[in-house]
Amino acid sequence: MVANVQIIGLRKTFGPTVAVDDFSLTVAEGEFVALLGPSGCGKTTVMRMIAGITDPDQGQITLSGQRIDALMPERRHVGLVFQSYALFPHMSVARNVAFGLKMRRQTAGQIAVKVAETLALVDMSSYADRLPRELSGGQQQRVALARAIAIEPRLLLLDEPLSNLDAKLREQLRDDLKALQRRLGITTIHVTHDQSEAMALADRVVVMNAGAIVEVGTPRDLYQTPKTRFTAQFLGHTNIIPARVQFGRMITPWGELLGAAPLGAGAVQLSVRPEDLGLAACDQGAGHVTEVTFLGAEVEHRIAIAGLMLRSRSSGRDAPVHPVGTKVVLSFPADLHHLSQEPAL
């Protein structure tokens, strides 16, 4: 029943604005893919086109070989969970979950069994007779999830399902969601603007900006070896350092990086995560500390060097703290990473 997804050349315009352009993506059976991007990047529009709420101008969507882009939404057999929960306010929890089953003309007995089973799955069995407004946000979202998976959809679409919840609850529900998805093996597309959510949940992340895909990859690859400045900066923090490769040597604005393996040719942009940027006090150092921030688990230093402003983070109890004004030298990891798809500055 679980389907794979193939999207080719999807395009949607609203009047003069291009919401989504040339969007192509393949999702394997049982895979969890996150569409990640800032608000207005078109990720929700993509999801709505897959669900059939919005009609695409161009392109095709295929579920396990079946074209669905011209089907009515009710014929697509796709589960949908909204940020707003979208529970039917005049129906009890049980009737909400039963709704999709009734539409499929299952018998009352089948429906009762399935509803009980699904509510147990999301840990909401004892709330079956409540009305949605008698539940907390987290509980409502569990019910919404139960309603979507009760119909055993070929594909599950999640539209910012955790965004209306507070931080603690969000983490809890995120873990539950992941466990549930792994257990049921439903192919899932999750739309979010929260990079940590995307990285925690997804097998693969699709980074989007301005209606187009920027980069696709596993969370680890995208974080550690982003190809673009946008991805590097959208997923966590990074230091972008313009550099030049000359005669096999890496030249930064403040001088040569000794021992660095040369990569690329000519001008390159290095991306160094703050936690990878080492720091040592040295009176001959080219940089100096301008700000120190204690973040609990980590200490962050800001360093001014050759007109750049860089961040360095170190963790652990014994992480050294350098007062503002300290002259410092920087140390870089051995495997330097540069943004291969960025034009040189």
Binding site: I53, E74, A86
Partner: peptide, 14 residues
Amino acid sequence: PADLAAAARSLGAN
């Protein structure tokens, strides 16, 4: 809210 109709459609309601 428009989401309600969309949710119902996705659950198989015409």
